[in-house]
Nucleic acid binder design. Sequence first.
DNA 1: TAGATTGTTAATCGATTAACAATC
DNA 2: TAGATTGTTAATCGATTAACAATC
Lengths: 238, 238
Amino acid sequence: MAEKSYQDKERSLELLQKEIDGRDSFRPEVSPAVIKRLPRYFRYLRELIRMGKSRVSSAELSKMMNVTASQIRQDLNCFGGFGQQGYGYNVNYLYTKICEILGVGYGFRAAVIGAGNLGSALVRSPMFEKRGVDVVAMFDISKQVVGKKIGNVRVYDMEELEARIHDFGVDIVILTLPKEYALDVTSRLVKTGIHGIWNFTGKELELGDSGIVVENVHLGDSLMTLCYDVAKSLENKK
Amino acid sequence: MAEKSYQDKERSLELLQKEIDGRDSFRPEVSPAVIKRLPRYFRYLRELIRMGKSRVSSAELSKMMNVTASQIRQDLNCFGGFGQQGYGYNVNYLYTKICEILGVGYGFRAAVIGAGNLGSALVRSPMFEKRGVDVVAMFDISKQVVGKKIGNVRVYDMEELEARIHDFGVDIVILTLPKEYALDVTSRLVKTGIHGIWNFTGKELELGDSGIVVENVHLGDSLMTLCYDVAKSLENKK
DNA sequence: TAGATTGTTAATCGATTAACAATC
DNA sequence: TAGATTGTTAATCGATTAACAATC
């Protein structure tokens, strides 16, 4: 009896496993440390493609990237066996896989709120195109810019925010407006259908249970880390 | 004999220790994980000061910052006992200490190379002033902007780079120019007396043994992390 | 003194590296 | 087959958390 029950359990576990594996898009829980490294793999793989390399071993890549080969193999294996023993990794295949994992293929649509210098700089950069993100609109309150185009992107009045987000099917909003407006705008955004916010305002956003994911950019923190290192290097020189 | 030698060793170790501790500005080796968190403490302490709070416990701060109180105490203790048992931490004192550690008091001088949208956005932000960094000059090749002021900062011709860096006593250079120029400019910078580079170009700089420290900003990596999270959340919603 | 909260040690947890069997 | 290199397990390292004695 006990034995049978055990076998039953084992069997149903197996079925569950299969069901899970069967889901086209199942994502196993991958550690944040690994995820944060994926964009870096993306960049180096593009570089390899640009260089015309079709094949790379973890050892080669580790030298390029200044990490251990072990870490590379470990990282990539979180998502599946992308390599081949005795050969290494096919650059194009690996790149495709990394793109898949990072959602490049989704063709996310983005809108920038705040058409000041920072918003303009971002929109004009090749960053989005490289990553399969399509910037479809900008928003601002200033009549000076509304109606104009920055790069290839038209600036709309903030009054049209909800309507345009809906019409364009915006997935991601990029907040590059003064922090004073951050909370007001966020409270409007949570009522739209967007899925993510790239937040440059430095303000902690209040998203409640909206399900919207946020990535905060604190450039000041990066500057301070540099200042710490500089201070330390000066003291060591003394 | 053997015992004496052991005592000698112990004694000289003690002396060495004292010598090290005696240095005014000695910095113990602190883990990168802790250092990366310091700017965040800096921000929250400013917030507390703004709120008029003069005293905070690790428990309170941990709630505000969404970390464990244990981690806060552990982090702060890397640099010394800033708190008081039974009381907590004095906000102003702690802020002063964190500022010291982060080199805010040095009054570093910075120059921006590349007066495009990104450079302009940075220069106009209050970020530098808040952190005691003084932006003293900008540089660009475009005759359109050379001689103009962006925010409070004058734009100089790239030809004057070395001379102005020397005259102004620039410590930190901020690279916000197109990546194609990054290596050329860096090769000029290593011959000046600067100590740090804040690199927005996305290009890996070649600094050799110049002793210049670099902080690389890869905004694209941040965007991709967001895309990953968005993709995951969409798949979970399905 | 009693209560609160730090500083600090020890325990746990997670991430990285090393090693090697599997396999192309 | 022999050589190369992955996938994966085990060992190490580092970072976080828990616990509590020290002390204000």
